[in-house]
């Protein structure tokens, strides 16, 4: 009787120490679920989801505070990827958040730019180059098309233009489906 109680106490002690050690030794920094969600978001940092950037939105989804259908730039593809990751049913994009658009890039009409730097401050990825009272320009390669620079411009010279289709980015279309197929 006594030996059994002793043995169990000893075991409990050993496992307790082991667990205690592991929780310190193998502590996970950050939130791995939020990381995985963040990796699927398009990183436009546009804020259309109502959160100040992709990372905060990812954390909100991970915490169960936000639904997965609030990202218009990601569109259907991101909703499906998130649904897959989180084991949920895909839902249609929340129309209040905006609509899915073809990829765009910001363009500054440089002849009318007054050099106020407001767009530079608005750009979440530092894709606008310029200095006070100097002309500004968009580094098209780095622009995510978030449209955040359009609104602050006092002289309305920033426009969003569709990304030009070229041979390197051209995609084969899906073939027409067969006639006799039941859909």
């Amino acid at each position: 009787m006594l030996s059994a109680a002793l043995a169990l106490t000893l075991l409990a002690l050993v496992f307790g120490l082991l667990l205690g050690y592991s929780s310190i030794r193998f502590k996970v920094e950050g939130d791995p679920v939020a990381d995985k969600i963040d990796a699927l978001l398009p990183q436009t940092q546009c804020g259309q989801c109502g959160y100040p950037g992709c990372r905060p939105y990812a954390e909100a989804i991970a915490a169960g505070e936000a639904d997965i259908n609030r990202c218009p730039p990601g569109g259907e593809q991101v909703i499906h990827a998130l649904a897959d990751l989180l084991g949920r049913e895909p839902v249609p994009l929340d129309p209040e958040r905006g609509e899915e658009k073809p990829p765009m890039v910001a363009f500054i009409d440089e002849s009318d730019c007054i050099g106020c730097t407001l767009c530079i401050k608005a750009c979440p990825v530092d894709a606008i180059l310029g200095a006070p009272k100097q002309m500004h320009t968009v580094i098209a390669e780095e622009c995510t098309g978030c449209e955040l620079c359009v609104e602050p411009c006092p002289v309305d010279v920033i426009s969003m233009i569709p990304v030009k289709e070229d041979i390197d980015h051209w995609k084969w279309p899906l073939p027409e489906q067969e006639n006799g197929e039941l859909s």
Partner: peptide, 17 residues
């Protein structure tokens, strides 16, 4: 894959900022 690559760059630039 290209989209992913661009998103990673955008994330890095955003974090840097």
């Amino acid at each position: 894959q290209e989209q992913k690559r661009r998103a990673d760059i955008a994330r890095e630039r955003h974090e840097h900022r």
